[in-house]
Design a protein around this nucleic acid. Structure first.
Lengths: 167, 167
DNA sequence: AGCATTGATTGTGTTTTACAATTATCTAGT
DNA sequence: ACTAGATAATTGTAAAACACAATCAATGCT
């Protein structure tokens, strides 16, 4: 690939992918967010391929939420996942069929369900947590530990900020 | 959104969504990345709903790449998008039918195509860039300008690091 | 010339995803 | 207490995204 004239007023490193300068993407946060999401998601799919939560768009989150919040309702999970209730219900179906969680009817509200982790699900949750930690160590090893906290705070702030603006 | 049900005992709020403590998600970068991606993507879909590139999973990137790299090949776009060639080909089909780009056959390699922006596409690209900039200003206004560069560098490093590990 | 490689398209089947409609339960107002 | 409206969840369905296999054409290497 020929070396193009470097952009005059742009001092950011014009880094390339497939021989293409990426500065044409307007240096948009959103593009990198999406790309990182794609890589991380695929990698996570591979690492969890042998588990009930494989190919997870929301199964992992649902499992960990139930594990950490006994008696949680499907609608609460839906809100965290930012999915509608039907989609969330099917994720829960899947986990129930696999024997990782169980449904009970909420004592305070007969309409609602209360979800609880099973022994099998609890073991699975622990396994998933280990996998997530491994992935984090592998992918973010270039960030020194003290900067990881900073990065995490930045992501949390972005997430909170965005959620607040949506309503 | 549900009402905040926990102004009772805790003052060091550990960060909740829908009344649920989120620390059960293992403080995983990947979870926040995915959530932010979902919010940003939906918002971008709304902002571009009236354009040819609406509902874009890759159309916007493809358009900007062609605009910034005259003569680019579909396979190069596929590599940036991290999609397979069939998926990329259909995105290009869509943009060609809409009259935003045009195909020519590459002079150096008769198998390959060389893609060029049209006047219509060029105007669209400018419009898209404006929208992206607006979105960035809206969503990341909580980050002071000097920290935005830092955040951006962090994202770029994460992206590069991940891509390198995939090979 | 022969053969493996690369660029691109078409076709197909699976999986997501959102939306509408339905049932059951709760809450509020009269 | 009773009705009206809101909320929790499920089922059904249609549209869209996505990956994989097969095919065809052009290139390059030996």
């Amino acid at each position: 690939m020929t070396k193009p004239p470097t952009p005059s007023e742009n001092e950011a490193q014009p880094f390339t992918v497939a021989g293409l300068r990426m500065d044409v993407l307007e240096g948009a946060f959103s593009w990198y967010i999406r790309a990182i999401d794609a890589v991380v998601s695929r990698d996570l799919d591979q690492r969890t391929a042998h588990l009930d939560v494989a190919k997870g768009k929301g199964k992992i989150t649902a499992l960990l939420l139930v594990d950490g919040h006994p008696g949680i309702r499907p609608s609460q999970i839906a809100e965290v996942l930012m999915r509608d209730r039907p989609a969330t219900g099917r994720i829960i179906d899947h986990l129930v069929k696999a024997g990782d969680i169980r449904r009970e009817s909420d004592a305070e509200d007969q309409r609602a369900q209360a979800l609880y982790i099973t022994d099998k699900g609890s073991a699975l949750a622990q396994e998933v947590r280990d996998i997530i930690r491994e992935q984090q160590d592998d992918f973010f090893d270039f960030i020194p530990p003290e900067d990881r906290d900073e990065f995490m705070r930045m992501l949390q702030r972005a997430y909170i900020n965005m959620r607040n603006k949506l309503k």
